[in-house]
Nucleic acid binder design. Structure first.
Lengths: 351, 351
DNA sequence: ATTAGCACTCAATGGGTGAGAGTGCTAACA
DNA sequence: TGTTAGCACTCTCACCCATTGAGTGCTAAT
């Protein structure tokens, strides 16, 4: 809504027509096309004049002198902020999504995975869903299990039914009574705390109170730390990577390869999705707004999910800048809604 | 070695030269090239005659009348069985592999993943490594942990430090003494057995002996079954999928897409790798020898790993039929060796 | 202010041509 | 009899060039 009056109403509708058309056809669109297809009641020459203005203002551009116009990143930006209409999903699409999301889930990660698959299917682009990121999770409980004489399984349970475990081996035999004692002690001193509340003094104290040697205790704490780290580390699922090959802008093999390779870089995707999601409910990164050079022909749409006031993860769609923004927005919103509902079911008060 | 005398010594060396050259250049190779580059002491006309024979026998073919020859699948088959020389890996390549495989591993799956990455890096093709497939695993122990009043964590431990768990929720409160009893009972009746040895009668018996209601017992057994299933299900890691885009045979976007999509089909890859690995130490599937139509331009080389006489997993390399077979074979063999060593370390007597 | 008309630009298309690589065949040779 | 030099032939590929068509900008008329 900044500089709202830079564009007259007529210019806006022409720009909208151009972008709508271009998104659909992938071909530079000329004045005649606009005059014919969209009923603006204007002759092609008039539109030509307006288009010249729009070009000067930087919203559209010509690939070469005698071609039609294509939107610039600035054009798309104006489009998503002011012009685009978000047509709601078709009934059967909604049903498809609901069906996928409502199936019985055993694990939170299963849900995430399914969400990414369904988004990429519905939109036809690449979808990324980042798993709940639980910074400073409260540990619900820690259990030690003696597997055999020399091996010990450490199980850490966090909110939302997230469980991680780690096996550790000892050189010497492990005293069964130690395990018993530790389990009791852990119940008291660890349960309900976050990892950073469990400091070295606590360990020392433990060591004094119950008579367990340091050589046994240290690896156990390392394992616990490791489990907590795994719980707190956000990972993500990406689906529909090869979808981008469907779009003519990536007909060039080198370009396609470049993009496919970028999408394989976990670090980059992570950063991308993470960053984008901080500010707003719905965040757009269009073309060159992405810092990464290889992504200057891609747009990323992200949103957060979670419980009211507490966002725990991110959903993202990656596609060519020439993207069906309206459809993607409605898809992503709908899935977020369902995801939120499930999240509340699973995590309950644990968030 | 079948029909060994179908090809004279001279035809063999010419065929070898053609294939070696073609693997390297990806261009149809002509008689002059052979006469010049490879010192066979023959004129191009002689080679032409021999090539005509080889073509009639089906080992090579011409894309068009005035082009050189390219190997057929039959040609490659003969090549891998009789002609190819397996040049050993370079020192630094071996070092690279060793380094990757020797790093400390916490989990068996971590090892598998790393193996697939290193193979695809070394060979430049797509690598698949299938995780240990433990049919009818012996369950080492089963533990129940009460998480809170209504939730129960079932932990199943199998050989080789493989652990799976599952959380189940109950509507009603769970009696702490039940958990205790069950843990003791499980120790006796389940530990050391395989899943199919735990039949319904056992459950019945359990139900009679210890006084735990059916509504509690059934979900627990389902959870155990589920964990065992997860343990026994082989999954695999695939790496370097986009590598195929490096090779000119997939310059055509449609073809590339087709292949990328196939490589995404877990079912197909699974089948492919699994099947190929049964018969021999080292199995080749060349081009159309793969039943799947989309793979008629790909070759798959597989081998099994595990302990002597007990193969538990498979390694595979997928690339264009025009593959550097010699190098792939030596890479795959070397990695198998290292993998076997680690497997023994991890699983010990549990296999 | 709008638009019809016109000259102009540029990419894409398709036919034509020559170069180059490679073959098969024939005849000569060892 | 096996080998090879020579030659006519085939086919692809790269390049040129003319044509086409879509689209523009500008001007003059409405």
């Amino acid at each position: 809504m900044v500089r709202d009056n830079e564009l007259s109403e007529r210019k806006r509708s022409i720009l909208k027509s151009i972008i709508d058309d271009y998104i659909q056809s992938a071909q530079p669109v000329g004045s005649r096309t606009i005059a014919r297809k969209h009923e603006l009641g204007l002759g092609s020459a008039t539109i030509r004049n307006e288009m010249a203005d729009l070009e000067e203002l930087g919203y559209i551009t010509q690939p070469h002198t005698s071609a039609g116009r294509t939107p610039t990143d600035k054009g798309y930006r104006f489009y998503v902020e002011n012009l685009m209409q978000i047509h709601s999903l078709a009934k059967d699409e909604m049903a498809l999504i609901r069906k996928a999301m409502n199936e019985k889930i055993e694990e939170i990660n299963e849900l995430i995975k399914r969400a990414s698959t369904i988004i990429s299917n519905i939109t036809g682009y690449t979808a990324v869903v980042m798993s709940p990121q639980l910074t400073r999770t409260v540990i619900k409980s820690v259990k030690l299990l003696g597997i055999d004489e020399k091996r010990l399984l450490i199980v850490v349970v966090a909110g939302g039914g997230i469980v991680h475990n780690r096996l550790i081996s000892h050189d010497s035999l492990i005293d069964g009574s130690h395990i018993e004692k530790l389990n009791q002690a852990f119940n008291i001193i660890i349960s309900g705390k976050t990892m950073d509340q469990i400091s070295m003094p606590v360990v020392k104290e433990l060591q004094r109170d119950i008579d367990v040697p340091k050589e046994v205790l240290i690896p156990i704490f390392e394992a616990i730390e490791d489990c907590v780290r795994k719980i707190e580390t956000a990972d993500f699922y990406i689906d529909g990577v090869t979808n981008i090959l469907n779009y003519p802008e990536f007909n060039d093999l080198m370009k396609a390869r470049e993009v496919l390779d970028i999408l394989k870089e976990k670090e980059i995707i992570n950063q991308l999705i993470f960053e984008g999601s901080k500010k707003q409910q719905l965040e757009f990164k269009i073309g060159s707004e992405n810092e990464i050079n290889e992504m200057k022909d891609l747009s990323v749409i992200t949103t957060v999910y979670g419980r009211k006031g507490k966002d725990i993860g991110t959903i993202g769609v990656i596609g060519p800048t020439r993207m069906t923004y309206g459809k993607v927005v409605s898809s992503i919103k709908y899935i977020r809604e369902l995801l939120n509902r499930e999240i509340i079911k699973i995590f309950g008060d644990d968030l």
